[in-house]
């Protein structure tokens, strides 16, 4: 860099150039195209910005991926602690013992059933009804997103069957209905919300 202090001979400073890079604001824009000192200053700042971007990329890579153990342990804790939901009773062998499943663990189980189908991802999931009283009728409501091109009705049916089987095996809930709603259709390689297709919403319900 040519200047020894922060000010160039032309009277402008690196601080001004630094602000110009961030905001595009400069007192005398025409000057920038003519002044060799300002140009070389800008070039140095731009090289630094590019190097800075490189450092960010390198640090992100060094930070690991979102699927690594560190993030998994953070998320496990988060799931357990922040939204455990209601306690769902399980019949004890010894009267007086209190055995329960958290609503959160069952919702997660339902979501994983949806996530395991090809081209399908789970969204909102609710257990409607008094889950804390044994025998109360419960309606499961789950939203799914399906990648465009996958058969919606077929996916919904398969998911309902899967959820019914899973809940029968892993809970003692009295499931009255399973309501699967296709809430979103996703474009493969989804670039952003604006480019997404229209989102049809179909809901279907049946007794399991």
């Amino acid at each position: 860099m040519s200047a020894s202090g922060d000010n160039f001979e032309c009277g402008h400073s690196l601080e001004e150039l630094s602000i110009y890079l961030d905001t595009g604001e400069f007192s005398d824009p025409g000057h920038l195209t003519e002044c060799p000192e300002c140009q070389s200053g800008l070039a140095a700042l731009r090289r630094l910005a590019a190097l800075g971007d490189e450092l960010v990329s390198a640090d992100i890579a060094a930070a690991g991926s979102g699927t690594d153990d560190w993030m998994q342990s953070i998320l496990d804790n988060l799931r357990l602690e922040l939204r455990p939901g209601r306690d769902i009773p399980v019949r004890p062998d010894t009267p007086g013992d209190i055995l329960t499943e958290t609503e959160g663990s069952i919702s997660a189980l339902i979501r994983s059933a949806a996530d395991s189908l090809p081209g399908t991802a789970a969204g909102k999931c609710r257990l409607d009804g008094d889950v804390s009283t044994p025998g109360s009728p419960i309606t499961v409501r789950v939203d799914v997103a399906v990648v465009f091109g996958h058969p919606l009705e077929e996916r919904a049916d398969a998911l309902r069957r899967g959820i019914a089987a899973t809940l029968a095996r892993h809970t003692e809930l009295n499931i009255a209905a399973i309501d699967v709603t296709v809430a979103d259709v996703l474009e493969p390689g989804f670039p952003g919300p604006a480019a997404g297709p229209a989102r049809p919403s179909e809901s279907s319900e049946e007794k399991p």
Binding site: D59, G66, D115, K124, C125
Partner: peptide, 21 residues
């Protein structure tokens, strides 16, 4: 925001490495 932890986890996984960096 509706309470969907799986959606929140996806966001955390997506942006966690930059937050950590």
């Amino acid at each position: 925001a509706d309470g969907d932890t799986v959606a929140f986890e996806a966001l955390a996984r997506r942006h966690g490495p930059l937050m950590r960096a």
